[in-house]
Amino acid sequence: MEKNYESKFKVEFLSTSGVYKTPFTVIILFQFFIGGIILVLINLWFSNHLYFLLTGNQFFLMEPRGEWYEWLLLPMSLYANILLFAFSIILFSAGIFKVLNWLHPPQEGVFKKGSKDWKYMHRRFWTAYFPIWLARAIPLPWADIVVFRFFGIRIGKNVVIYEGYIDPEFIEIGDFTMTSLHICIFSHLIYQDKVLIKKVSIGTNCIIGPQTIISPGTIMQDGAILGANSYTWVCQELKSELIHVGTPVDKTFPIQSLEESQLKAEKIKKSKVFDGQHSKINIEKGGENK
């Protein structure tokens, strides 16, 4: 039984995670609309107060009336509007996401194009798209982590994920993990008219190098390091306290302490291989031998 479960996730090639444009994509306009209405209501309240302070009259009778210190909010109004727009949409779409999860709980497995799971996957992705875009457009670096937590990714303390693509579900990241620039963490994979969904779990104290791809089903144990420019295959396991390199990952190196690596570097410097004149000769000889 277990063997069958494993073989279900065997793939010949890695593609990407991605979603088609479906009728449900209109939800972005709906989210825009909700954010806009909240903006209008708050601005109406604010402009009413300012008008009262200027003239002594009100457009709409409101209690409490404007106070003098509300003038202090005027220079902030543009930036506050941006933050208000973003966070109202984030909260609203987190609600939609929970409703979708209640209607059809997300599952791991392989699903055909057009099946119920496939449709709900698209719906979840499109609800998550706009709030995450907003969170990353705001100049608050922690905003996107907060939003990912809203959408059901478990992210620990002091985690660095600013510059990369991350799927909005089936991902678990431990404390103190650092990720580098231009990474992709996929828990979904498009595979010949099918979608493959498997949970990715990343432990504590992990380091993920730049330009890497983590494909679905990858398990990174505590303290594992993934080197730059490498990628993992589906359902691969990276063992703890080791450096993993390769396309896909096939080599491992032990993690050295700083003193050890400095000693090694000094040895290499002293040896003739890296000496300016000798190195040229070595390269030429190598060429002859071949």
Binding site: T16, C184, N229, Y231
Partner: peptide
């Protein structure tokens, strides 16, 4: 055609119907 993540296609590449290029 399916092209994976982090791929790059150089000038003059022709991908025929249903060809697949793995990631990276």
């Amino acid at each position: 055609v399916i092209i994976g993540a982090h791929c790059s296609l150089m000038h003059g590449t022709i991908m025929k119907e249903g060809a697949k290029l793995s990631a990276h």
